[in-house]
Amino acid sequence: MTPRRSGVSWTQTFLHIQGRGAADCHTYPDRTPILEIPTGSSVVKIVLPATWVDDAVRVFARELAEQAHAFALEVERLHHTQQADRREEAA
């Protein structure tokens, strides 16, 4: 993916999971949740404005959930394909 140049600073971070990752959603009664993705000695935390949820934050959270679901479906598809290939090679 090539980032678009818009005159704004940008960065990319890659978190290699290699089967040892986790995903945790920490919820609190009086502030927004924190999504934490730890793996090995690294951790990524997705943090929203602490106490205010406007429509843009809600839309982002929904999009994050939808893309995480699409990611999971693709991982399942690849796993199934690779398992089938291994069975064929063993036969």
Rank of each mutant, 00 (worst) to 15 (best):
Y28W: 06
H79K: 09
I34N: 01
S6H: 14
E88T: 15
R87G: 01
V43K: 14
Q82D: 09
R58T: 12
E76I: 07
V59G: 02
T81G: 04
V57H: 04
H69V: 05
F14N: 07
R58V: 06
V59Y: 10
G19P: 00
A90R: 15
A91H: 15
F71Q: 05
T81H: 11
R58F: 10
P49I: 02
S6V: 13
W10C: 07
H16Y: 14
D24Q: 14
T2V: 12
T32M: 07
L73F: 06
R87H: 10
A23S: 08
T11H: 13
G21I: 01
Q83W: 05
E89W: 15
D85N: 11
R87I: 04
V47I: 15
R62D: 08
G19A: 04
V53A: 09
V8M: 14
T27Q: 08
Q67M: 11
W52G: 03
E36A: 10
D30T: 08
F71T: 05
T81R: 15
V44N: 03
R77S: 03
G40N: 01
V44P: 01
L73D: 10
I34S: 00
D24H: 14
V53D: 06
G21W: 00
R62Q: 10
R86V: 11
L48V: 04
Y28E: 02
S6W: 13
P3K: 04
I37H: 00
H80V: 07
T81P: 01
Q82L: 11
S6Y: 14
P3R: 05
D30L: 04
A68I: 07
R58Y: 12
T39N: 05
E66H: 09
A50K: 15
R86C: 07
P29S: 04
T13I: 15
Q12I: 07
A56R: 14
V47P: 01
H16C: 10
W10S: 07
G19H: 01
H80D: 14
R87M: 06
L48M: 08
V43Y: 06
G21P: 00
Q12Y: 06
R87D: 03
T51I: 12
E63C: 11
P33M: 08
G40L: 01
D54C: 05
E63M: 13
T81E: 15
A65T: 10
A90S: 15
T2C: 05
R62C: 04
L78W: 07
V47D: 03
V47Q: 08
H69E: 08
R87K: 11
C25K: 12
A70Q: 13
Q67A: 09
T81S: 10
T81L: 11
G21A: 06
E76G: 05
D55C: 09
A68K: 07
I46T: 02
Q82Y: 10
H79I: 05
V43D: 04
V53M: 10
L78E: 14
L64Q: 03
R4L: 14
F14D: 08
V47T: 11
V43S: 07
V59F: 09
A23D: 03
S42A: 14
H69C: 05
F60H: 03
L35F: 07
Q12F: 06
I37D: 00
C25P: 00
Q82G: 03
G40E: 00
C25S: 12
A56N: 15
E74R: 08
S42D: 15
G7F: 02
